[in-house]
Amino acid sequence: MLILGAFNLFVGRLYLIPSESMEPTLNGCAGCDGDRIFVNKLAYLGDSSPHPGDVVVFRGPDSWNGSYTSQRSRNDVIRGIQNAASVVGIIAPDENTLVKRVVATGGQTVQCRAGDPGIMVNGKKVDDEFTEKPMSNPVDPATGSQACQGPYFGPVTVPQDNLWVMGDNRTNSLDSRGHMGDELQGTVPVENVVGRVEAIVLPFGRTGFVDNPDIQHN
């Protein structure tokens, strides 16, 4: 148990995808058998940091946690058992952990305005071939566009040591775009990142590595 606990704490652990916000890359929905993913906690050791295109698990900043409800029991004994089980990876940590794709990093400017061909970072369109198509929800042409895959936003210059993150299911994801009014302009501190998503472990029919492409290659 100690070895398993140390592995989960320092090396990596499994997480369950609870929603549809990262489809088609990661599957999850209410009442279905969501993907279980392996998150590599060693991916960003030392001078390494998340790159545009990486799929990351992170702890939600304070402004992202308004609707989070603890899943722990109010009974002290049961809660203690749950916390112990969390250490060895049997159940999830009691924190608002989310999974999104990094689109822009510190110092970069991200936007999607009327006339833009897609999400723009430093004036260039980022790759969006991995996003959900056709889109899950309609886009109001008065406030957004098909190219933006949702409402217009930006420009936002990402603070140093922060990330702009978005779901692959762009019209069904509450991500950086939905938190632009907070003190971080919707961005997420790098220190909040738990690790990089490397693979889908379960269900067996979907087992495989998760692609973390360079979306700013052009």
Rank of each mutant, 00 (worst) to 15 (best):
Q160E: 15
V99T: 14
N83D: 15
F10E: 05
D62G: 03
A147K: 13
E23C: 00
A199L: 12
E183G: 04
S48H: 01
Q146G: 10
N192K: 02
M22R: 00
T207K: 06
L4D: 13
N192R: 04
V194W: 03
D128N: 05
I215S: 13
M1D: 10
S173T: 10
A199D: 03
G115Q: 12
K133T: 15
F7T: 06
T97S: 14
G80W: 10
M166P: 11
R196M: 10
L174A: 13
N212F: 00
T157K: 15
G150P: 12
K125D: 01
V194D: 07
N192V: 02
A84I: 10
S48K: 15
E129V: 10
K133W: 05
G144V: 11
P189S: 10
V121G: 06
V102P: 00
M166K: 04
F38S: 05
G31L: 08
V188P: 08
P134L: 04
V103W: 01
V165R: 00
L163S: 09
R101F: 01
V103S: 00
Q185K: 15
V56A: 06
V55E: 05
F38P: 04
I200K: 11
N162A: 04
N172E: 10
S63H: 06
V57Y: 04
M180W: 02
F7Y: 12
G107C: 07
P203L: 06
D47H: 02
S19C: 02
E132N: 13
W64H: 14
Y44I: 07
R59I: 11
L16D: 07
P50N: 00
S145H: 09
N27C: 02
G107Q: 12
L26W: 07
V88R: 02
Q160I: 05
L42K: 11
D140S: 12
C148G: 08
K124T: 14
Q160D: 15
T131L: 07
H179P: 03
L9D: 05
P189E: 12
W64R: 08
S136V: 03
I78Y: 05
R36Q: 12
K41F: 08
Q185D: 14
A84E: 09
Q111I: 01
V102T: 00
H51M: 09
E23G: 01
I78P: 01
A114V: 05
E183K: 14
T157L: 12
V56W: 01
P117Y: 09
L14G: 13
E198S: 13
G115C: 03
E20A: 15
V194I: 13
E191L: 02
V11L: 15
V110F: 04
A104P: 02
M22N: 15
F153A: 01
G53Q: 04
G107L: 08
R177G: 07
S145T: 10
V56G: 03
V103F: 00
G106W: 09
R196V: 06
C29M: 02
P141H: 00
